[in-house]
């Protein structure tokens, strides 16, 4: 490979990596914000993402609702379903046993329920394409080519990330979320409504997953299995340390870029292993993740 081509590949890999990485980053954010507040890895994140895409598809294509109505409706539905799942299922499971394992299994249950529901409607039987809301004309950045849709994905994702950071860092409700994650017992004694905080976190997390789905759906073929992309989001979360919001974002971009570079420089067949290679390298050399801070040892 000559140098000129390598430089071209490098630019293309970085730019495409940032676009797909921004979607991984959003999904990783939605996983990490739940884990931070309740130490439950949400294994239904992928299916929430998939179900939200189908919800929007149903409203826009089969009900012919205008976009300005279909998108808020999709986001509101995602919020409600997730918040109610937290209140109706997880809270009850926590009360009944208190073991974190059961909470994780409950999220797996949600993933099967959502997948089952989408299959039940029949819309998931054949791969479908989602209408693009932004033109797919191509634009050049340096020597890299990408579409206007790609740019819209990146910009929208960055705006959502900024909003999440602002919420967590600079608002009362964000502070309560962080406090509940660190010490629920003390937070409760200070009068923080723990249950409401958990519902809000689940709802917001689902909204972020839904936004990721709306952004990426036009670029991929929709199937009931599209939630498997969440593997990349978990990889991103692990790279970032699993409890750090900035870590999740950086992890998302790292996974996206590595994936694209491997695809261009090595082989498109090697793409699937790239994220796991990154996870292994991170776990070997910096097991707490890039943004995980130091290891805390719990007293027994």
């Amino acid at each position: 490979m000559d140098l000129e081509l390598a430089i071209l590949f490098l630019q293309q890999g970085l730019v495409s990596g940032l676009v797909i990485g921004s979607v991984y980053a959003l999904l990783a954010l939605s996983i990490v914000m739940i884990f931070k507040t309740s130490e439950v890895p949400n294994f239904a994140a992928g299916e929430v993402f998939m179900a939200a895409a189908y919800c929007a598809l149903f409203l826009m294509v089969f009900r012919a609702l205008p976009v300005w109505l279909a998108i808020p409706l999709t986001l509101a539905t995602s919020f409600l379903v997730a918040a109610l799942f937290r209140r109706g299922v997880l809270t009850q499971v926590a009360k009944a046993s208190g073991s974190p394992v059961n909470l994780v299994i409950a999220t797996l249950g949600l993933s099967y329920v959502l997948k089952g529901l989408v299959r039940r409607t029949g819309y998931g039987d054949t791969p479908r394409s989602f209408p693009a809301l932004v033109s797919t004309d191509s634009v050049m950045i340096g020597q890299a080519s990408l579409t206007r849709l790609d740019m819209a994905i990146f910009v929208a994702a960055v705006v959502v990330m900024a909003a999440v950071f602002w919420l967590f860092a600079y608002t009362k409700v964000g502070r309560s979320m962080r406090a509940v994650g660190m010490n629920p017992k003390a937070a409760r004694l200070m009068g923080v409504n723990i249950e409401r905080v958990h519902m809000l976190v689940w709802g917001l997390s689902a909204v972020i997953s839904a936004i990721a789905a709306l952004l990426i759906a036009p670029k991929i073929l929709m199937t009931a299995e599209m939630g498997s992309v969440v593997t990349m989001a978990f990889a991103a979360a692990i790279v970032g340390g699993f409890t750090s919001l900035p870590g999740a974002v950086v992890g998302g971009f790292v996974i996206g870029i590595v994936e694209n570079l491997v695809g261009l420089f090595i082989s498109s067949r090697a793409i699937v292993v790239a994220p796991f290679l990154v996870i292994m390298l991170v776990l070997i050399f910096r097991p707490q993740g890039l943004f995980g801070g130091r290891f805390a040892i719990k007293k027994v």
Binding site: R175, R178, A179, K185, L189
Partner: peptide
């Protein structure tokens, strides 16, 4: 226990129960 703060009952703990990653102000 979530009603205690509203009633005006506050406590400190023998083995600290702080929000470790938050600042003093937070």
């Amino acid at each position: 226990s979530s009603a205690m703060a509203g009633l005006g009952i506050a406590r400190s703990f023998q083995n600290l129960e702080l929000f470790n990653e938050l600042t003093v102000l937070e």
